[in-house]
């Protein structure tokens, strides 16, 4: 599948934004985070910035972005519509949270923060289910896919939270959370790649043509000598030969390096910890960008069987 830059950016940016919103709403009442309103407002602002930038980027993928409002109507059947509804609804408690922080209404801040955390989790779940529900794409139509979106969103959100909270003077807790979530993410990605490497395509060319009785079927002549939208969209094969290298880059940048930096920050604290956690947040985002790009590039669609066999 073609890794459209707008969608790759959207899922990474809004995933991290919702992850940050989730942890902020959930952890602030526990006292593990700096309690100054300025800290929560900075995190909230950053999360809404990432979410909004991602949502705007996703509309660049549309042929008619001015009609995007119509996508809110089919939540009964469509995960994409549910995602849109959940994304917009999450703005309400998030903005309420911000209002409560500014006006000092601490009870409202806790309630709105928790509601925003719930909305964030639901939205990212819907994003994952858009892909997990597509039967023609074997690498996506798997129970591990949507939990993966949730976990990596939570992980990248925690990396951002740790960086901001280090600036606010709290290092230990968030830094150790990065290590825990990073380990979980690492295991998840290794398991995912193990699964998809063993997975056959969702169908064969023989069953795609109804010619199973004749034996093996292979392509002879394509319908056109030139390419088409279908081929660009579903027949994407550019990255396959680099996949192994890109997977290693993803593991290193996205997981190993930030976990080491977090351990370092937790050990030493101070100004160096701020620097280390800022760097960790950036490498997590870079690693997840590679991960998301690969998630598309390595996915195969049954329609490509008709062309590539």
């Amino acid at each position: 599948m073609k890794p459209a830059p707008s969608i790759v950016f959207f899922t990474v940016a809004s995933g991290a934004g919702y992850g940050l919103l989730f942890w902020l709403g959930l952890l602030r009442p526990t006292g593990l985070l700096p309690q100054a309103p300025a800290f929560a407002l900075t995190c909230l602002g950053l999360s809404l910035l990432l979410i909004t930038a991602g949502l705007l980027a996703s509309t660049f993928h549309l042929g008619n972005p001015q009609r995007a409002w119509r996508a809110l109507s089919q939540w009964r059947s469509s995960w994409l519509s549910r995602e849109g509804v959940a994304a917009l609804l999450t703005y309400l408690p998030a903005l309420c949270f911000g209002f409560a922080l500014v006006s000092g209404a601490s009870g409202l801040a806790v309630a709105a923060g928790l509601l925003a955390a719930l909305g964030a989790a639901v939205t990212v779940w819907c994003t994952g289910m858009i892909y997990a529900s597509l039967k023609p794409i074997a690498q996506w139509h798997h129970p591990i896919l949507a939990p993966g979106y949730l976990l990596l969103g939570a992980y990248s959100g925690m990396a951002l939270l740790a960086a901001v909270s280090a600036i606010g003077g709290v290092v230990g807790g968030p830094a150790s959370f990065i290590v825990t979530l990073g380990l979980a993410g690492l295991v998840l990605k290794l398991a995912y790649w193990q699964i998809v490497d063993r997975l056959g395509p969702a169908a064969s060319l023989a069953s795609a043509t109804g010619l199973e009785a004749l034996g093996r079927v292979r392509p002879l002549d394509p319908p056109a000598t030139e390419t088409s939208w279908l081929m660009r969209e579903m027949g994407f094969r550019v990255a396959r030969k680099h996949a192994a290298v890109l997977r290693r880059i993803c593991l290193l940048l996205g997981f190993v390096l930030p976990m080491l930096l977090s351990l370092f920050a937790g050990q030493f604290g101070g100004g160096l910890a701020v620097l280390a956690l800022l760097l960790a947040a950036l490498t997590v985002l870079a690693g997840i960008l590679v991960e998301r790009w690969l998630l598309f590039a390595e996915a195969t669609h049954t329609a490509a069987l008709y062309y590539h066999g």
């Binding site: 993928h61 042929g63 008619n64 995007a68 023609p136 794409i137 169908a203 969209e233 579903m234």
Partner: peptide, 11 residues
């Protein structure tokens, strides 16, 4: 809206 999701969903 031209999101293309239906084409992805068609095997």
């Amino acid at each position: 809206i031209g999101c293309g999701l239906c084409a992805w969903a068609c095997p």
